[in-house]
Amino acid sequence: MSLDKEAVARIARLARLKVPDEELAPLAVELSGILAWIEQLNEVDTRNVEPMSSVSNVTLPQREDKVTDGGIAEKILANAPGGAVYIEQTDKNAGGFFTVPKVVE
């Protein structure tokens, strides 16, 4: 499968990656090269082979459905890139918000 510039631009949009126009053509060559190399998998007959999604042969463990943490709003907001807003300045663990750019006009 060979990808052209437009296909690369579409994948970049899906992945929410800004890719400058001048990088699209070289990326198309690189990605096509990787995909062409991957094509060799078609040599293998995989009919009736169960896909393997995990190497651990165990059913995933379940735990009791109960709250195991909480009251750590300050920790959760500590790395907020736009800064955080707290409901109460005196008790930051009482709750707060991430700030994001305005999305609704």
């Binding site: 949009r13 929410r16 990656l17 800004k18 790395n79 907020a80 890139p81 736009g82 991430f98 994001v100 750019p101 999305v103």
Partner: peptide
């Protein structure tokens, strides 16, 4: 949004990109 780098954009999608 929640941690790491943020580079502003004209809308939310552009901010992600």
């Amino acid at each position: 949004v929640r941690f790491g780098l943020r580079v502003p954009g004209k809308d939310l999608i552009e901010m992600y990109q």
